[in-house]
C-alpha cells in the first residue's frame, strides 16, 4: 500500500486529517491527433474541515482536476488518495463506491432527476449504498431539513426554483455523509440572491466540519472560502489561505 515515506501517516504537517492528497498528478488526453495536457503535475493536500476554492481561467484544468478529485476520471500519472485510499489504483466498481460514500457532487446545473421528487432525489445515493426504505426516508428528510426545504419534499424539480433545486442537490450530496463536497460553479445558474444563500449554506455546512471544494471563476464566491488555489495551464499558480 505504501509507495513512499510521505504517506506513512494520515496527517499533514498541521496534524489534521488529510481528505485529499494529490501528488504530481498529470492528465493528458487526446482530441484526435492533438494531445491535450490538461494537468501537468498538480500537488495538493486538502485537510478535513477546509473550505477551498479552485480558481482559474477556462482551460486551466480546474474541471479536469475536479473530475479526478471526484473519482470520475483517473490521472494519466501521479497519485491521488481520498481519505488515504489510493483511488488511482481502484477498479470501476470500487471507484463508484468512493463516489457514492466519500464524495458529494454539486453541479452548476443541479442535475436533479426530473421524474423524481425532492426527497427521492436525495434518496438516490442511499439507494445505491443499499439503504432500506425507512432508513432512506428518515435520512433524506433530515437532510432536506438541514438545507431548509422541509416544506418542498414532495415537489418535482420542475416545481422548484433554481435556489431550491440547488439545495436539494446539496442535500443529495450530503446523503451518505461524504468526506468532502465537490461543487462545480454551484452558483453559476443562480441569481445573485439565491447564489448568496447557497454560499451561506456552504459556510454553515463548513462550520459543521464538512470539507468543501468549490470550483469557480467568481472572486466573490471564492472570497467566502478559507483557501484559494489558482490554476494556470494545468499547474498550481498560487495557493493561499485567506481566513
Amino acid at each position: 500500500m505504501t509507495r513512499d515515506g510521505s504517506k506513512l501517516s494520515g496527517s499533514s504537517a498541521t496534524g489534521a486529517q488529510v481528505v485529499v492528497r494529490i501528488r504530481d498528478v498529470k492528465r493528458i488526453y487526446h482530441l484526435g491527433k492533438v494531445e491535450v495536457r490538461a494537468l501537468q503535475g498538480i500537488n495538493l493536500i486538502v485537510e478535513k474541515g477546509e473550505f477551498l476554492s479552485i480558481m482559474g481561467p477556462s482551460g486551466c484544468g480546474k474541471s479536469t482536476l475536479m473530475h479526478i478529485i471526484g473519482c470520475l476520471d483517473r490521472p494519466s500519472s501521479g497519485h491521488i488518495s481520498i481519505d488515504e485510499v489510493d483511488v488511482d489504483e481502484l477498479d470501476d466498481n470500487r471507484l463508484a463506491d468512493i463516489r457514492n460514500r466519500k464524495v458529494g457532487f454539486v453541479f452548476q446545473t443541479f442535475n436533479l432527476l426530473p421524474k423524481l421528487n425532492a426527497i427521492e432525489n436525495v434518496e438516490l445515493p442511499l439507494i445505491y449504498a443499499g439503504a432500506g426504505f425507512e432508513e432512506r426516508r428518515k435520512k433524506a428528510s433530515e437532510l432536506l431539513n438541514v438545507v431548509g426545504l422541509n416544506d418542498r419534499m414532495y415537489h418535482r424539480p420542475s416545481e422548484l426554483s433554481g435556489g431550491q433545486s440547488q439545495r436539494v442537490a446539496i442535500a443529495r450530496a450530503l446523503a451518505n455523509d461524504p468526506s468532502l463536497i465537490l461543487a462545480d460553479e454551484p452558483t453559476g445558474n443562480l441569481d445573485s440572491k439565491s447564489g448568496e444563500e447557497i454560499i451561506h449554506l456552504f459556510e454553515e455546512l463548513n462550520n459543521r466540519g464538512i470539507t468543501l471544494i468549490i470550483v469557480t471563476h467568481d472572486k466573490d464566491i471564492a472570497g467566502h472560502s478559507k483557501r484559494i488555489v489558482r490554476l494556470k495551464d494545468g499547474l498550481v499558480l498560487s495557493d493561499e489561505k485567506i481566513k
Binding site: 471526484g70 470520475l72 463508484a96 463516489r99 457532487f105 453541479f107 442535475n111 445515493p125 445505491y128 446523503a175
Partner: peptide, 16 residues
C-alpha cells in the same frame, strides 16, 4: 445520457 452521468457521479455502478 446526462441522467446516467449523474447516477454514476453519485455512486451507480455499471451493474446498477
Amino acid at each position: 445520457v446526462r441522467e446516467i452521468g449523474v447516477r454514476k457521479a453519485i455512486g451507480a455502478k455499471r451493474r446498477d
